[in-house]
């Protein structure tokens, strides 16, 4: 099995490091043709406006929309997977029926770490929230896997997983393991 990590911009090496720890093969994806050889995909954190620009330049948009395998998006990756961004200049991929607000907690000085309670594990997860987005609205069929102060921060929809925080910035592999074990 090969997991493609979208490597147009952002913290893609951090995801690779976690997959290496889990002994899962991965490939950094910069060209649309590479997507065909991947069983699953990860869209990392970074700047969503930059990534979308590069997705369109590289002709990946339709492939990512139609990709039959599981996709896991963190932070900017979550914005990309959402159906709609509150910020209309961001044209998302629409794989998960949620509406998302960019930089919803404020600028960098408001970035924080806080424990996230998970539905699938009794130990909380160390959530790193960097200029993080918020899910402002979601439709039926969304499964909430974790909340922070009552708000969903990790959700599953069909074979898509979304976190508004950065599990790749920790050494904790549980969310990547959940993705690999439950979405394939």
């Amino acid at each position: 099995m090969i997991i493609g990590i979208l490597g147009l911009q952002g913290a893609y090496w951090k995801h690779r490091k976690i997959l290496d720890l889990l002994k899962v093969n991965s490939e950094i994806v910069k060209y649309s043709g590479q997507i065909d050889f991947c069983n699953g995909l990860i869209i990392p954190g970074g700047e969503s406006t930059t990534m979308l620009k590069l997705i369109d330049e590289s002709g990946m948009r339709e492939k990512l929309k139609q990709f039959p395998g599981p996709i896991f998006g963190t932070c900017a990756g979550a914005i990309l997977l959402s159906e709609e961004s509150e910020d209309h200049k961001v044209k998302t991929l629409g794989r998960i029926p949620v509406k998302i607000e960019r930089n919803a907690y404020g600028r960098q000085v408001e970035s924080f770490t806080q424990k996230v309670v998970l539905s699938f594990d009794k130990n909380p997860f160390p959530g790193v929230f960097i200029r993080a987005p918020k899910i402002s609205c979601y439709k039926k069929g969304i499964e909430i896997l974790g909340k922070l102060n009552g708000e969903a921060v990790i959700v599953k929809y069909k074979n898509n997983l979304l976190t508004t925080f950065h599990p790749e910035l920790t050494e904790d592999t549980r969310i990547h393991e959940y993705f690999l074990n439950n979405l394939f």
Partner: peptide
Amino acid sequence: MDKGSFEVKVGLAEMLKGGV
């Protein structure tokens, strides 16, 4: 909630990687 830690500072730098 822990704001302004070294971890979240470096976290933003990580997000800027591969960019201009």
